[in-house]
Write a protein that binds this DNA or RNA. Structure first.
Lengths: 206, 206
DNA sequence: TGTACATCAGTGAACGCGCGTTCACTGATGTAC
DNA sequence: TGTACATCAGTGAACGCGCGTTCACTGATGTAC
């Protein structure tokens, strides 16, 4: 409006849109290939329909694009779990909803999930902290169940770890081995959690 | 000894030895990188100390080397589990020993384990059959425990699946996230299995 | 309203690299006589 | 025992490829006057 100090008109709105297109193409490629290395700068450019060097207006390197997608994916996973937890009042229903959200994310984005938790060195720095916080959500949910008398655990952290291991196992193996006779997602989830339920359908004592 | 029809003297014994050296270098590279794509034919040749084309005397392609290593790794994993099962008479001890052998293999060869179960299309054909048989060992061990009254399960296949998911989760996450506060391997194994024990240390009912 | 100009998103050509694979070869090894 | 020869494991040079990145550029857009 004012006529002084007008800079960066950001013409045609393309600046933002192209960046978003590049990001989306990279996310799709990550999902399709399930491999960081197969997400090449030139293939991204091909899909967006631009010349490869045009990407450098918006990202400093190929690696930065992949990192941006994975950072967003991690944030999305965490947000999905938090939203699921907030949607339920009953502690046991909260625990189950949080775990279901975790498995649903992995089922919808198997390639992205694989890379997120498959990289060797990626989860350092702020991502490591974010991961610890997400795991903390599970520990808290389990502890709340125990406090409400809805859950059998003598060590919520250790049992949350085992639950997470099983969730992660399903998240990665299910897409990898389509030939295996998998139970459905809810059936697997019930069976993972039933051992911690006070009177779960499968939690007998002989 | 006889002088007729003497062919393929296989001179200097190098024919066999070089093949073994190539195989060993590829196995070491797979373990170090944890990635199929990073195992390049030229890097293998560099490590063995030969010219790259020399490899073609012993393997038809780069991919064939990787496949040979992974096939051997899979066979080794299965043999380790079978040997552990055979070493114990008591059904519960058998189950635990088999699972421990599985986790020990993964702990000793994390990179190889990751690739073995991380590939999308690899486990087809005879490898899929071998995988199903290995999983069958776990189902049988669990069923034997139940038959001996040492184990609480209403569905050995489903519970074996959950146990396998947790084993696989530990096998892949533990090397990936060295910063996480992991319990020790035996502690994790005990906690995974304790829920199925008739009077396990953590298997209370409130 | 019309013209000269600055801006800057996107381009095309080129670079050096490591890769898998091919090909004609070399040179030590063991055999035939 | 000595010599000519066949064998064949391993080599060096070269190929075509796709990659990430650089660089000087172009050409439409919006602004100043």
């Amino acid at each position: 409006m004012t006529q002084g100090a007008a800079r960066k008109p950001n013409r045609r709105g393309e600046g933002t849109r192209l960046r978003a297109d590049i990001f989306a193409a990279a996310a799709a490629l990550i999902e399709e290939t399930g491999s960081e290395q197969d997400v090449t700068l030139r293939e991204i450019a091909r899909r967006v329909g631009i010349a490869a060097p045009s990407i450098y207006e918006h990202f400093p390197s190929r690696e930065a694009i992949v990192d941006a997608v994975l950072d967003a994916g991690f944030a999305e996973l965490r947000a999905a779990v938090e939203q699921a937890l907030a949607s339920q009042a009953d502690p046991w229903a909260r625990l189950r909803a949080g775990c279901a959200a975790y498995l649903n994310f992995a089922a919808q984005r198997p390639g992205q999930y694989r890379i997120l938790f498959g990289r060797r060195l990626h989860l350092t720095g702020r991502l490591a902290a974010a991961g610890d916080e997400t795991f903390g959500l599970l520990v808290t949910a389990l502890r709340d169940c125990a406090a409400a008398g809805q859950c059998a655990t003598d060590d919520p952290t250790a049992d949350a770890t085992v639950i997470w291991l099983a969730l992660h196992g399903y998240a990665t193996l299910h897409p990898s081995l389509p030939g295996f006779a998998w139970p459905s997602l809810p059936a697997v989830l019930d069976r993972i959690l039933s051992r911690y339920a006070p009177a779960g359908p499968a939690g007998h004592t002989p």
